[in-house]
Simulated assay, not measured.
Amino acid sequence: MSKTKAVLCGYYGKGNGGDEALLMTLLQMLPETVEPIVLSANPKATQKFYGVASCNRTSAFSLLQALKISDIFIWGGGSLMQDATSFTSPVYYAGLMALAQQRGLKTIAWAQGIGPLNRSFSRWLTRQVLSGCTAISVRDRASAELLTNWNFTPLVAPDPVWALESSAVSGLWDLPAPRVAVTLRSHLLLTPQRLQTLTKALIEFQAATQCFILLVPFQQSQDLAIAKQIAAQLKNCSQIITTQNPKELKGIFRGVEMAIGMRLHSLIMAAAEECRCFALSYDPKVTQLMEELDLPGWELAHLPEAASTISMAWLENYTNAEALDKTRIESLIDRALLHQELLINSIN
């Protein structure tokens, strides 16, 4: 019996740890009867690492061939439909879904974070393609409320990465303890002045706790330069730690006492591994997670100007805060698996 072929569409092959974690989780959740074809910016690397068929996400010929031989098209998690960072992003993703629908493929919007959609055209485009979907799941309350206002009834469940298994990281436990992980990314809100303030706060925090700082670039093209800049000022009490394996990326947080993070999936991974978290929000999706999990933190736009204020807040969290309890983590994982049920029910 031939397998059902499904095109998986997301921000894959760009070296972003969070999006690769979503891809790995999606591949784990797909029924065994499905043969995936992953659209990727680096199809050779994707095919080699995941052991699945992959094609170039920007090659019109490859895209048309993949759609021609497939039965299903899946938006594979993340904030694909948003125009805050790029107007071309929603046009690209909606355009592919519309083309798949035109060709008669079953389409699924899986584990989506919808928005921000600042332009009326982006909102119209999103509604149009979602109206043709067989199934829709979203990962946060704000996305669910938006779609409900548009008369959709999406499945609402936590981000699938909650359910991703973690793997041990070689050499992690040989590093000095206690350990604190820091994940910062390049962004307009992370101005040079704010980065310097955060670095100074880290120096003060490290001196007070004698912790070892792990600098974790989730996307090296955006994060590595920042990590190197901080490491240069933390001298011998820090290390940059990188991995292309999403399971290992999540596993890093097994061995740390606290995580200070900008990136959404760094906070999800840390919380899932029973790590205390402190958020620095640059995006509504991070703010929503802070609210849902009651995480301490700041909007970057309102970051205190005094490094001592920041370091004292980190010290308070490090000393007195508690990680999510196991019961709540298990509940989040169980609910994240609803995304898998949606796939099974929609595909079979």
Rank of each mutant, 00 (worst) to 15 (best):
K3A: 14
K3H: 14
L8T: 01
Y12N: 10
L23H: 05
L23K: 06
M29D: 09
P31G: 09
A41P: 08
N42A: 15
N42Y: 07
Q47T: 00
C55N: 04
T58D: 10
S59W: 06
L64Y: 14
L67G: 02
I69G: 05
G77F: 13
D83Q: 03
A100N: 03
G104S: 08
K106R: 13
W110V: 01
L125Q: 10
T126N: 07
V129Y: 11
S131R: 05
A144Q: 09
L146R: 07
N149F: 09
P154M: 08
V156A: 06
G171M: 01
P178G: 01
R185L: 02
R185P: 00
R185Q: 04
Q196H: 09
T199H: 01
L202V: 00
Q206E: 14
A207Y: 11
L215A: 08
V216C: 07
Q222K: 12
I226R: 03
A231M: 07
A232N: 11
L234R: 01
K235Q: 14
L249T: 02
K250V: 01
V256K: 01
E257Q: 09
E257A: 10
L264Q: 00
S266G: 08
A279P: 02
D283A: 03
P284V: 04
K285Y: 01
Q288N: 11
L293Y: 02
L293W: 02
G297W: 00
M312T: 13
A313T: 02
W314N: 04
N317E: 13
Y318M: 13
N320A: 15
I344G: 12
